[in-house]
Nucleic acid binder design. Structure first.
Length: 569
RNA sequence: GUGCCUGUAGCUCAGUUGGAUAGAGCGUCAGCCUCCGGAGCUGAAGGUCGGGCGUUCGAGUCGCCCCAGGCACGCCA
């Protein structure tokens, strides 16, 4: 679809130029020519409203302009255009030729796994940081969504040529992991029989810490009671981080998300970079002292208040290591850095961008996208709330466990990923638990996977009848004359443009939607037209090429989403 | 109070740089299996795109003002 647009673009541009030179079109420059695939076959395959846009400057009726443009088009020059027509208020509708349909299928069959990929990002390194949950508990549902989205965005960027990596920032320093150490300490002493202890303010109530502390008590006994409270908290903090981070890694692997780089906040702090950043800020006069703390002039960057970077107790607030971390990303040579943050971090976005600006980096170097919240619901719409620190919250693992009980592990991950990916990042997501486990037509994941399995099944069936796929060059694709076939090929041709736009716009949800639409054209086609037909072998071979193409695109799309493309279900 | 996000069919949501008659799934109702997998297909009903004003050939899309909902506003991360 991209190549054809370029072809048409050149041809129309040439026609408009010719019309200007002949004096028929009283404008000075050739304008931008917008295109859109049409919504209905009645409007051809591709349409452009270019004549409408010229009406004002040319002071002519749009239809008259369109007629002049079309008159100057040399259709013989472009074998991919079958016809041009002027319609409605002055649209120019382009009908594509059978040769174009043939070429599309041949391209897909030749490219196979590579169909849909592009080269726009070649030579550019991109880093996406996502999930980055505190190592103080299991991953929650929103982290699951972020994991699915981030993982898919990396796939998409890599598909269009970028060199993209997945990175996880481990918040293993600061107050929150301190509270973790204290919480484990309490649980540990409780496990050894101590009474009247309470989890400190801001601590973690979860049962998982009780279990963890009990394990320590069972294995090590009261050995740690000999240490001072301070030493013990520090030890438990480190043990806890290691344990919980390990569990997060297990959960992520189970969810088919594999990070390339894990960066430790503690390591950043120990590296001395935060001190350098503070020094630099001080030199640039971004800092001042007040109320015993050191403040950053955030208001100079347009924010409504300044913020503390060094507390009265002398410790950095998290902004400092965070700024240092982003500077480190820059030092590592990324051309573009994307942070996916949770819904509770949106207040942080402008501040983070301001810090990056303060570091002297370009405005568009850092991109921050918010992954909105997820609500788990029943078909009735009843919500199952997730609360972060009440002890009982729904985790990514418990969600997959629940799905796996119904559809098995493999499809549980498939379904969860699909549901997390089907909505735009900034829109709230209602995750319908009942729909997710339905193994029926209403479940969009199965609908798509079933289409793929059906394609495979046709080949299986063909094999039994001694009918094999022929090379596309030996097949008469002109026999694909059904309207359904035309529609299918058109949809297949859109795939590379969908991949490109969803990578560039960071809109992973366009892929699930596209695949669902493709399956929605394939299923009726399958239902109405037989592929394997011994009485018409020439057409059978042609249709096998088409089926092969559908299968390839479905598989390629699902692979980008990290969802399996089953050969049978 | 300030900032960000959202508001499209009964429900959940798509709608690429403004383009022709605003789409899909679920739900509801009515149909289709001697035939490559019925996890499928066909059809019907269902809309003041939250409201108003503006920009222009043309607005769900852009601008401004309201209304409603969500979230964030710590010397936590």
């Amino acid at each position: 679809m991209d190549e054809i647009k370029l072809e048409i673009y050149d041809i129309l541009k040439g026609a408009i130029r010719a019309a200007i030179e002949s004096g028929e079109l009283p404008i000075s420059d050739v304008p931008e020519i917008p295109f859109s695939p049409t919504k209905t076959p009645e409007h051809g395959d591709i349409a452009t409203p270019v004549a409408l846009g010229l009406a004002k400057s040319a002071k002519m009726a749009p239809r008259a302009i369109a007629e002049i443009i079309v008159k100057h088009v040399d259709c013989d020059k472009c074998p991919h255009i079958r016809d041009l027509e002027i319609a409605g208020p002055g649209f120019i509708n382009v009908y594509l030729s059978n040769e174009w349909l043939d070429d599309t299928l041949k391209t897909i069959v030749d490219a196979q796994d590579a169909y849909g990929s592009g080269e726009i990002g070649i030579g550019k390194r991109v880093q996406i940081e996502f999930v980055s949950a505190n190592p103080t508990g299991p991953l929650n549902i929103v982290s699951g969504r972020a994991a699915a989205v981030g993982d898919t965005l990396v796939n998409l960027l890599n598909a269009v040529g970028y060199e993209a990596i997945r990175e996880y920032y481990v918040n293993d320093a600061g107050g929150q992991v301190e509270r973790l150490g204290e919480s484990i300490d309490v649980r540990y002493r409780q496990a050894l029989g101590e009474k009247n202890l309470e989890i400190p303010e801001g601590g973690y109530q979860g049962e998982y810490l009780q279990e963890f502390a009990q394990t320590i008590a069972a294995e090590e006994g009261d050995a740690y009671l000999k240490l001072s409270q301070e030493e013990r908290v520090e030890l438990f903090r480190d043990k806890g981080v290691e344990h919980l981070l390990g569990q997060q890694k297990v959960s992520l692997e189970r969810f088919r998300v594999n990070f390339d780089v894990w960066t430790s906040e503690k390591a950043i702090r120990d590296s001395g970079k935060p001190d350098e950043i503070i020094e630099m800020f001080r030199e640039k006069d971004y800092l001042y002292e007040a109320e015993g703390a050191t403040w950053f002039r955030m208001t100079d960057f347009g924010d409504d208040k300044d913020c503390v970077v060094i507390r009265t107790n002398g410790e950095y607030t998290y902004f400092v290591p965070d700024a240092a971390y982003h500077h480190d990303k820059f030092d590592r040579g990324f051309d573009k850095v994307i942070d996916l943050l949770g819904p509770d971090h949106q207040g942080h976005v402008t501040r983070l961008k301001n810090f990056v600006k303060a570091l002297g980096l370009a405005d568009d170097w850092l991109e921050v996208d918010i992954i909105q919240q997820v609500n788990l619901v029943d078909s009735d719409g009843n919500r199952r709330d997730m609360s972060k620190r009440q002890g009982q919250f729904l985790t990514l693992d418990s969600l997959i466990d629940e799905l796996a009980d119904a559809v098995g592990e493999r499809f549980a991950v498939d379904v969860a990923r699909y549901f997390f990916l089907m909505r735009a990042n900034n829109s709230h997501l209602d995750f319908n638990l009942e729909l997710a486990v339905t193994q029926a037509n209403e479940n969009p994941v199965f609908y798509i996977q079933y289409a793929h399995a059906r394609c495979c099944s046709i080949f299986q069936q063909g094999k039994e009848q001694q009918i094999e796929l022929k090379p596309s060059t030996e097949v008469s694709l002109a026999l694909l004359t059904e309207a359904h076939e035309h529609e299918l090929i058109r949809k297949l041709a859109e795939f590379p443009a969908i991949v490109l736009s969803s990578a560039e716009e960071r809109e992973a949800h366009r892929i699930p939607h596209y695949l669902h639409e493709l399956a929605g054209i394939f299923h009726p086609y399958y239902n109405q037209h037989r592929v394997l037909d011994a009485s018409n072998m020439e057409r059978t071979y042609a249709r096998l090429i088409l089926i092969q193409s559908v299968q390839t695109v479905l598989a390629n799309g699902l692979r980008l989403l990290g969802i399996s493309a089953p050969e049978s279900m």
